[in-house]
């Protein structure tokens, strides 16, 4: 059962002359990792940012089609494009978290960073906050490194630590789906390995969609892979099949490095 199902989805930026995504159909399966690959400008980020309606921060962008998100209590699929009210947006973003290319620690302490979303969602109780922050930090393999300086500014952490902090911050809200947009492209190989390991670990509790330019990364960690090209979804399948036995010529050319 997919947690999210992208159906005939098209997207047009207000400032762009034409569609950036053309009628995409794609499932994002539960408790698995789906990677989005494709050459620069093909619309990976655009698709990813549609899944939590991040585009709505900027006016006049146009969605078409359906983005169905599984409601885990009723087990029904609901179209997140129907969302109009502010509180529904807030709920959606708590259910669908996002991690960006560059680490984005907030200008506050490590603890407050992780507690930020929790506090917003109304958790005031000190011990509960502390427990959930600790859980999130442990779940993001960061607790050991920062437990003695939780009240220090998050700006003092290394890039890799900052990125894991951002993951902890998102995980703390217990989201159903996590969106990663090239989360390791600004990091060194060791931090990258740590993050990859962490993402695979996260799969137990949450579904993941990840945009990456790194073919090895996609093949190492993901269960499913979608290849996009010029706003179209060219091919989707199990990662092994896409990399070993692509059906489309374009996919093969791309993963063998003939363009992109």
């Amino acid at each position: 059962m997919p947690i999210m199902s992208v159906e005939d989805f098209s997207f047009t930026y207000a400032a762009a002359p034409a569609r950036s995504l053309n009628s995409i159909n794609l499932p994002i399966k539960k408790n698995s990792i789906t990677s989005l690959i494709g050459p620069s400008g093909c619309g990976k980020s655009t698709l990813l940012r549609s899944l939590n309606r991040m585009h709505d921060l900027y006016t006049n962008n146009e969605y078409e089609g359906r983005l169905m998100l599984l409601n885990e209590t009723t087990l029904e699929m609901e179209n997140i494009l129907d969302i109009k009210k502010e509180n529904e947006f807030i709920q959606l973003r708590q259910r669908v978290g996002m991690i960006f290319q560059k680490p984005t620690p907030f200008p506050m302490s490590i603890f407050d960073n992780v507690a930020y979303g929790l506090r917003l969602s109304g958790i005031k109780n000190k011990t509960e906050l502390k427990d959930r922050v600790e859980d999130a930090l442990k779940g993001s393999a960061l607790f050991g490194e920062v437990s003695d300086r939780l009240n220090k500014s998050a700006m003092g952490l290394s890039g890799g630590q900052q990125q894991r902090l951002c993951i902890a911050r998102a995980v703390a809200l217990k989201p159903e789906l996590l969106l990663f947009d090239e989360p390791t492209s600004a990091l060194d190989p060791i931090s990258t390995a740590a993050i990859e390991e962490l993402i695979v670990e996260l799969k137990k509790d949450v579904s993941v969609a990840i945009v990456t330019h790194n073919m090895q990364q996609a093949s190492r960690i993901s269960d499913y892979t979608a290849f996009m090209y010029l706003g179209d979804l060219i091919e989707y399948g199990e990662t092994e099949q896409i990399f070993l036995n692509p059906r489309e010529k374009k996919t093969e050319d791309y993963i063998t490095g003939r363009f992109g």
């Binding site: 921060l57 973003r93 907030f106 917003l120 951002c166």
Partner: peptide, 26 residues
């Protein structure tokens, strides 16, 4: 930076909360 604001929105913050917690401190 936009990403910083977007990260806060991605955690379910309202505009006012982003202004108060992210933009003003930053």
């Amino acid at each position: 930076p936009d990403v910083l604001k977007e990260s806060a929105y991605a955690l379910g913050a309202t505009k006012f909360e982003v202004i108060r917690d992210i933009i003003f401190p930053y």
